[in-house]
């Protein structure tokens, strides 16, 4: 036994020959965000699976309708993948996405085909289904890129400062030292749309996707995410707290592509007009969540 002990002790500790990949943290956070979105969006509905009867094989990929994001951003394209009417009168619509995965629970998701069951009396057209999936994909992309920039900013933040970001803002006015934005309420979670003016830091960092651009490159009508630093501390009990914006300054700006999809349709009709379905091995579809009652 002692020989074994000796041998075990003599083996030198093996070290990995590389470190973790550069995208490690981003991948972790992306997965968390996707899971959160699924829970907050999808799981609010009754979750009892229900089998719908339609044959996956009869859906034909037609490849119409393409969309693309702006330069410096990864391209996202969504295509109509075909449709199949169920015996209930509801129809299944397939949407193929390049550069985006709406959900991870679809078998064979390598081809990124996603399926939705549309109510028989729904006014949703197939083009609108494609557009809403595209919109959701674009929102996700902005979220990912914002997350990357947020982590950068956090590294240089001073003690006592609080920090937050706001996405899907449209520039109404811009000049040296200040920016006026209004929220685009067509995106998930954006509920208020009054114009607000912020001071802009002299060393403001401005990016367009993966590229650094100048503050002067921004113009009225651009969609942006603002990363604000708030020097008021964290107490919200102070009188005039919500009105006083002078202590807030914009530390960084992410210019985001103008949406080519229709995310608002996605959020508005989810559960009401459509639900996502998952193809099964026997050719049927299982609802990922139920229609609203």
């Amino acid at each position: 036994m002692k020989d074994i002990e000796k041998m075990l002790e003599s083996v030198e500790k093996k070290q990995p020959r590389r470190n973790v990949g550069a995208q490690f943290t981003t991948n972790v956070l992306d997965t968390i965000e996707r899971t959160n979105q699924k829970e907050s969006l999808f799981m609010k509905f009754a979750h009892k699976p229900m089998l719908a009867t339609a044959a996956v094989g009869t859906l034909l990929v037609m490849g119409t309708g393409a969309y693309a994001a702006a330069a410096n951003w990864p391209t996202i394209q969504s295509f109509f993948g075909g449709e199949q009417t169920l015996s209930t009168g509801n129809r299944i619509v397939g949407v193929k996405t390049d550069g985006c995965r709406v959900a991870d629970d679809t078998p064979g998701a390598a081809d990124n085909m996603h399926y939705y069951e549309i109510r028989k009396d729904s006014p949703l057209t197939n083009d609108q289904v494609v557009a809403m999936v595209q919109g959701e994909c674009e929102d996700d992309l902005v979220a990912k890129q914002s997350n990357v920039l947020a982590q950068e900013i956090l590294k240089s933040k001073s003690p006592g400062e609080s920090f937050y970001s706001s996405s899907f803002l449209t520039i109404e006015q811009i000049n040296n030292g200040s920016i006026t934005v209004v929220a685009d309420t067509s995106h998930q979670g954006v509920v208020v749309s009054s114009p607000t003016t912020y001071n802009v830091a002299t060393d403001v960092h401005v990016m367009d996707g993966s590229a650094t651009i100048q503050y002067s490159d921004l113009k009225v009508g651009d969609t942006v995410t603002l990363f604000n630093v708030d020097e008021r501390g964290i107490s919200t009990e102070k009188q005039g707290y919500t009105q006083d914006l002078s202590a807030i300054h914009v530390k960084a700006i992410l210019k985001t592509p103008t949406s080519t999809g229709n995310a608002s349709l996605f959020y508005k009709d989810l559960g009401k007009e459509f639900v996502r379905v998952i193809p099964q091995k026997d050719g049927s579809f299982k609802r990922a969540y139920e229609f609203d009652k």
Partner: peptide, 16 residues
């Protein structure tokens, strides 16, 4: 924008 801290979808908007 009355409450930009909760006005977007991203959880990292929380105050630090």
């Amino acid at each position: 924008i009355a409450n930009t801290k909760t006005a977007t979808k991203f959880p990292h908007n929380c105050i630090y």
